[in-house]
């Protein structure tokens, strides 16, 4: 199939970017990223600079890939990362627009690659259970209700890709933060620090320049791991409670 690609090119964080148009021959068995590999091979052969984009596992788990494809983070298939998208969903003659995540807190580094270190700093602010390596008690000493554990796992499945931020009209990081707060806060092991965790993580989120959540749910719709917005409601409950009980509030 012959495709027309409109790709965002930007030399670095301090220059302005623009779209460039390319033609590429792909086939339906390729993955979307393999189609970009073909484009890059072509550019290298023409002695031009290939397109920079982030990727690693190419099986939907590392969270590195981060492409807005035809206006949608990770493209049209739901519950799928860009690297799991296959070319059989496109047809000969299609024009495809490819852009980086757009959010003030995720500045572009080059072409389609953005800086998502703000997510790391949100985790550093409290996304952990305070426990040193050593000799904790036997793992079975604290039984955990199977349903609770499973809910926690649903939230823990977040891959930290940032599609939720890219999808949100306010560039809010609420779904990402709520997923971590839920993952840890649901488990008995994580309950002791719920108050400080939620307050510190939300504060950090604001500091990083992510927007406010206005409940549009665009995040859930684009999340490749189908993280539920019920986690946001849980974060809000935890946050309210923490503000009431914590002297820090």
């Amino acid at each position: 199939m012959r495709l027309t690609l409109k790709v965002w090119r930007q030399k670095n964080g301090s220059t302005k970017g623009q779209f460039e148009t390319y033609q590429v021959d792909a086939n339906e068995h390729m993955s979307f990223l393999e189609m970009l590999d073909v484009l890059n091979q072509q550019l290298v052969e023409e002695k031009k600079v290939p397109v920079t984009f982030e990727h690693d596992c190419r099986e939907g788990i590392c969270g590195a890939c981060s492409l807005v494809i035809n206006g949608q983070p990770h493209g049209l298939s739901s519950g799928t990362t860009a690297c799991q998208l296959h070319m059989r969903f496109f047809k000969d003659g299609d024009t495809i627009t490819i852009e980086p995540w757009r959010a003030a807190a995720f500045p572009v580094l080059k072409d389609l690659m953005v800086d998502r270190s703000a997510f790391d700093r949100i985790i550093q602010a409290g996304g952990y259970i305070t426990i040193n390596t050593g000799a904790p008690q036997d793992a079975n000493a604290v039984p955990v209700n199977e349903e609770i554990s499973s809910l926690s796992m649903d939230a823990a499945a977040c891959i930290g890709c940032g599609a939720c931020v890219a999808a949100c009209p306010n560039s809010s990081a609420m779904l990402f933060t709520a997923a971590k707060v839920s993952h840890l806060g649901l488990l008995p092991q994580g309950k002791l620090e719920v108050d400080t965790r939620v307050i510190n993580m939300v504060n950090q989120m604001d500091k990083e320049g992510f927007g406010q959540c206005s409940n549009t749910y665009a995040c859930e719709a684009e999340c490749p791991k189908e993280i539920s917005v019920t986690n946001i409601a849980r974060l809000n409950r935890m946050y309210m409670k923490a503000m009431v009980t914590s002297s820090k509030g």
Binding site: I131, A135, Q137, A139, S152, Q189
Partner: peptide, 9 residues
């Protein structure tokens, strides 16, 4: 034991 205490579900 360590991973469970860290919150690995």
């Amino acid at each position: 034991d360590q991973a469970t205490a860290q919150g690995v579900p």
